[in-house]
């Protein structure tokens, strides 16, 4: 059952004076909620996510669209980056030269669940788009936070694989806010669905009370 409020926006707008990306957004997201953000591209989902992230940067495992993978480091290091804040700087620097055995174990476990274990010592520029997205997910998972925020985190994977990984990620976090393109996935795996359109909240439903045809109106032109 959802607990206390974790994220709150009241009448928030964002953007430049004449070009607002978000208009007058008010919402509250509680601990334990699994929220899907839907809406056509350009609706302001990414901006909303970054606004929300800024409220609790230390509690959130983020998986943004620009994955920020570092091509010169191995997959292992790219996943390990999710855990940087857990260890001392010195520990992190030594790890860069010679990965710690215990961390290798942990990261390998994360990679295994994502199906990229045998790519652990390759660098991201040697991976396919789908594999890169899994590395980015791996970094988020390795942050070990209770809140997950993702921006189209499975868009480069095929539907079947994407769904599997989405389920896994949602299981690993008590709270999740995920921008997602597919209304079906949103309705199937999330408790609550917030639809954005032109920078405004178009609808905010509990998944149980929503029927898909209502949701599809979001994507229709006015």
């Amino acid at each position: 059952m959802p607990g206390q409020a974790m994220f709150q926006l009241t009448g928030a707008s964002f953007g430049h004076d004449d070009q607002l990306v978000l208009h007058d957004i008010s919402l509250e997201i509680r601990d334990g909620e699994k929220v899907a953000l839907v809406g056509p591209s350009g609706a302001g989902k990414s901006t909303l996510l970054s606004l929300l992230w800024k409220q609790q940067p230390d509690a959130v495992a983020l998986c943004p669209q620009e994955s920020g993978l570092v091509d010169l480091l191995s997959t292992y290091q790219n996943i390990y980056m999710g855990g940087l804040s857990r260890f001392s700087t010195l520990y992190n620097l030594i790890n860069l030269i010679r990965p710690w055995a215990a961390r290798r174990e942990e990261v390998a476990r994360v990679a295994r669940t994502l199906g990229i274990e045998e790519k652990l010592w390759n660098s991201p520029d040697q991976l396919s788009g789908g594999q890169r997205q899994r590395v980015a997910l791996g970094r988020a998972l390795y942050r070990n936070k209770s809140v997950f925020m993702g921006d189209e985190p499975v868009s480069s994977l095929d539907p079947e694989q994407g769904e599997q990984l989405l389920i896994h990620v949602l299981q690993q976090h008590t709270t999740a806010i995920v921008a997602i393109h597919s209304p079906e996935l949103a309705a199937k795996h999330f408790d609550r669905i917030i639809a954005l359109k032109d920078g405004r909240i178009f609808g905010d439903w509990q998944a149980a009370e929503l029927d898909l045809s209502t949701l599809e109106t979001v994507y229709q032109d006015a």
Binding site: D71, L72, L73, S74, R112, G115, I116, E117, E118, W121, N122, S123, D125, Q126, L127, S128, G129, G130, Q131, S156, L157, D158, E160, Q161
Partner: peptide, 27 residues
């Protein structure tokens, strides 16, 4: 390649890996 990952690798949108040498760019 291990069992589970084989099945995962099959279903990817972008087929196949980039043709690159063994060594990673970083290396």
């Amino acid at each position: 390649m291990g069992g589970k990952s084989v099945s995962l690798a099959k279903g990817e949108k972008s087929k196949g890996e980039k043709p690159k040498g063994k060594k990673s760019t970083g290396a």
